[in-house]
Nucleic acid binder design. Structure first.
Lengths: 243, 243
DNA sequence: ACGATCTGCTGAGGCAGATCAGCATGTGCC
DNA sequence: GGCACATGCTGATCTGCCTCAGCAGATCGT
C-alpha cells in the first residue's frame, strides 16, 4: 500500500488536501508495526508515556472502568483510526484500549508527533479535524445514551457503525461484518446484555435489522433511519475544506 | 486585561509554553466582541459558515435536539472556553449553542483560525490540546450517563463543574456561583427535572452539597468525591508539556 | 471424548426513574 | 395592582430496564 492509500491518509485527505511532502511526513510518522491479540488490553488507564497508534487492521474499543466494577465503552475504532491521541497529549492515559479482534497497528511516538506538527502545520490541522470528528461521534453517543430508549439507541448504533465502515469500504447498505458480542454492545450502550438481546430480537422481529453470527444485515434501511432519528451528516461531507 | 491574562491564553499556556509572538497571534484571533442575551440561541444545528467564539464572560450550553422533542445538553462552557470549533472545521454546526446567562464573546473567523494555525503551528497544537481536554470531559460525561445512577451522576457533575471553575478562579473548595436551573441539570444529566429535584434534596439531606438560589455549597467534599468516584486528574496537570 | 468456557437466549420479579398532576413562590410586564 | 410565566417542590402511579437464574449450542484445551 503506498503512503497515499493507507486508510489514515485517506481519512485525513477528506479534510485537508495533502501535498506529496505532507503525505511522506505522515508516512514517516508510522513507527514500529505491532500485533495485538484480542482481549488483551493494549493500554490501560493511568499508564504514562504510552505511544499512540494508527490502526491498520482489526477492531479495538476504548473504555473506562468505574470503581463499582461496571465498564462503559466509549467508542470502537476501526482501520484508519488514530488511537490514544489524548493519552499522548496528556502524557497519561485516561482510558483503556482493548483489541476486539486480532489487531495490527503502527506505533506513533509522542516526540515524532509533536515534531511533525511543528514542521508540517497542515498535518496538525488535519489531525485536529480527525479528533473533532471523533468527538462528534462521542457526542452523538452521549445523546443516544442520555435521551434515546434502548431500541432507538441500538438502531442508531448499528447505523453509525455502518456509516463509518462504509468510509473504509467495509460496509454496504445491505450490511457488514461485525465482530462484536452482545456483551460489548451492552457495555457500549449502557444496557445489560440481557436487555440488548431482547432489543435485538425486537429489531429482528420488526424486520429492520439482524445482528447474528458476526454479521449485521440491514433489511429496512429507511425504517431503521426513522426509528433511530439518524443523521449521517456529521460523518461525511464532500471534498476537503482546506485546499 | 493584557493578552497573556485572558482566560483563554491562560488555559492554552497550561499545555504549550507560548512565546510573546504566539500570544499576540492569539490576541489577533479575537475578532468583534459580541453580547448575547440569555436563552436566545447563538448558533443552531445545521447553520453553515458560522464563526467560532472565545467566551469572555457568562455561561453557555451546547445541546442537541431529538426528533421526539427531547434535548440533551452535551456540555456547559465557561469563560475561557472555545465555542464552535467543530462547527468551523465541518463548516456546518452539528449542535446548538445557548447562552445560559448574559454572555460576552469574541468572534473567531474560520479563515483567521486556519491562517493562524499554518503560521503559528504551536498554536494549532495548543488548540488541539484544548479540544482534547473538552473531549475528555464529554467522555467522562458519557460514562456518567451510561453507568452511574442519578445520585452519583449528580455528585460527579457538581464536582466537575467546581474543578473547571477553579481553573479560572470562579470556585473554591467551599462552593461556587451556578446560574443553572434544575431543568438544565436534568437535560444535561439525562434525567427528568422532577427526579433531579429529589436527588438534590437527598444530597442535601445527606449533608454533602446544597444546590440552591444560584449557588452550590459543598459541605462534605470527601464524601462527595467518594460517592461520585471522582478523579480530577483528567482536568489538570502541572505545567506545560510542550516547552 | 471430556469438561470448561463463552456466547446467545428466555422467564420471573424488583426497582430506579419517568410521567402526570398539583401547589407555592418569585419576577417581569402591562 | 394583576396577570403570565418560570422555577422549585411534592405525592401517586406506571414502566423500562436490571438482576438473578437457568438452558442450549459452539469452541477450546487436554
Amino acid at each position: 500500500m503506498t503512503p497515499q492509500q493507507t486508510p489514515f491518509a485517506l481519512k485525513l485527505s477528506a479534510f485537508v488536501a495533502l501535498s506529496g511532502e505532507e503525505l511522506s511526513a505522515l508516512d514517516r510518522l508510522h513507527g514500529r508495526r505491532k500485533k495485538f491479540a484480542a482481549g488483551r488490553d493494549m493500554v490501560h488507564q493511568g499508564q504514562i508515556n504510552q505511544p499512540a497508534y494508527i490502526l491498520a487492521s482489526g477492531w479495538v474499543c476504548s473504555y473506562k472502568l468505574l470503581s463499582g466494577g461496571g465498564r462503559q465503552i466509549v467508542d470502537f475504532q476501526i482501520p484508519g483510526d488514530f488511537l490514544g491521541l489524548r493519552s499522548v497529549l496528556f502524557r497519561t492515559a485516561d482510558h483503556n484500549i482493548e483489541p476486539v479482534t486480532r489487531v495490527e497497528a503502527s506505533e506513533v511516538l509522542p516526540s515524532d508527533l509533536l515534531d511533525t506538527f511543528s514542521r508540517t502545520p497542515r498535518l496538525a490541522t488535519a489531525v485536529l479535524w480527525a479528533a473533532s470528528r471523533d468527538e462528534a461521534m462521542v457526542v452523538e453517543h452521549l445523546v443516544g445514551i442520555g435521551r434515546r430508549d434502548a431500541k432507538e439507541r441500538t438502531a442508531h448504533f448499528l447505523l453509525e457503525l455502518g456509516a463509518r465502515l462504509k468510509l473504509v469500504q467495509l460496509s454496504t447498505p445491505l450490511g457488514y461484518a461485525c465482530p462484536l458480542s452482545q456483551y460489548m454492545l451492552a457495555d457500549a450502550m449502557g444496557l445489560s446484555a440481557v436487555h440488548v438481546n431482547r432489543v435485538l430480537r425486537e429489531l429482528r422481529d420488526d424486520g429492520l435489522v439482524t445482528f447474528q453470527h458476526g454479521k449485521v444485515t440491514i433489511h429496512d434501511l429507511d425504517g431503521l433511519v426513522t426509528l433511530a432519528d439518524f443523521d449521517k451528516s456529521y460523518l461525511d461531507h464532500d471534498g476537503p475544506l482546506l485546499k
